[in-house]
Write a protein that binds this DNA or RNA. Structure first.
Ligand SMILES: [Zn+2]
Ligand SMILES: [Zn+2]
Ligand SMILES: [Zn+2]
Ligand SMILES: [Zn+2]
Lengths: 139, 139
DNA sequence: GTTTTATTGCAACATTGTTGCGGTATTTGT
DNA sequence: ACAAATACCGCAACAATGTTGCAATAAAAC
């Protein structure tokens, strides 16, 4: 039992979720990864689990504010760990999803909150997706 | 033959596309709409066309820089007209996609270009999605 | 009008996501 | 440590979304 596994157990416990193998395995994959992980990648690594279980597991973790989707302009959905600011009540992300055109990785990048003002609009959330070349692929 | 229909014909011609009924009808729907139109809405309005035809038509129009997808954090894809800055070579959008939590409309909002700087990254494109209450739903 | 060429419609398939339910694993309580 | 209560998983079946190949058709060019 590694120290990271203890953490993940705790995370599930404090969200009042049973610490089952699928959840621990999914969380472990997303937690270990540097970049956001695509659904299909998680699926591939957890072939033994039922497809439906994976969908439900991911959705549960999102609902509880543990992971979040990085909806980028692709058919694929990517998942990454939330920070402590996310709860069951809602996700509060102040970061950019960066998509590298070269390595195709999706990374969550903390940044200054982007302030947008639109006349006669109430803006509750701003999501930003940047495309380009990531630092790893940068010459 | 309305004046808008002439325009749409021209648009297709200058993109070296045949001005067929499916294309004119799809373009007409997207062009008339105030907000971006969801795939399912277009589909519903054009029941007579084959499902595949709609997919191919939309993709062709995107490739030619005539319409663009508004990928918002929803399973549904929305479509809107491009401006003249978009060509076959690429889409150049400097606008926000605003999703209203109340009326659920997706609108393209022109805005000042959002400048983001990330160390050791090359940023080629920035896409912004704001959520909240739109001007129509604003009290 | 006829030929040429692009586009459509159909059928079949692939992928992605959802729902209901019985069996199973995790917790809770003793 | 064990039994009871409960939450979760796996399976089957379905629904929605998207793709491919090809023959029939419509638009454009001549
Ligand atoms: Zn979150
Ligand atoms: Zn990269
Ligand atoms: Zn609204
Ligand atoms: Zn737009």
């Amino acid at each position: 039992m590694t120290s990271s596994k203890i953490d993940l157990n705790k995370i599930l416990r404090s969200a009042k979720l049973k610490a089952t193998k699928p959840r621990l395995d999914v969380l472990s994959i997303i937690n270990k990864a540097e970049a956001a992980v695509s659904h299909s990648e998680i699926q591939a690594k957890l072939e033994s689990f039922d497809r439906v279980t994976l969908y439900r597991t991911l959705n549960t973790l999102i609902e509880k504010g543990i992971i979040h989707k990085a909806h980028v302009e692709s058919t694929e959905v990517f998942y990454a760990m939330c920070t402590t600011s996310c709860t069951e009540e809602g996700h509060k992300h102040e970061h950019i999803h960066f998509v590298c055109d070269k390595c195709e990785e999706v990374t969550c990048i903390d940044s200054e909150p982007i302030s947008i003002k639109l006349p006669n609009h109430i803006i509750s959330e701003v999501r930003v997706q940047a495309t380009g070349i990531c630092d790893k692929c940068f010459v």
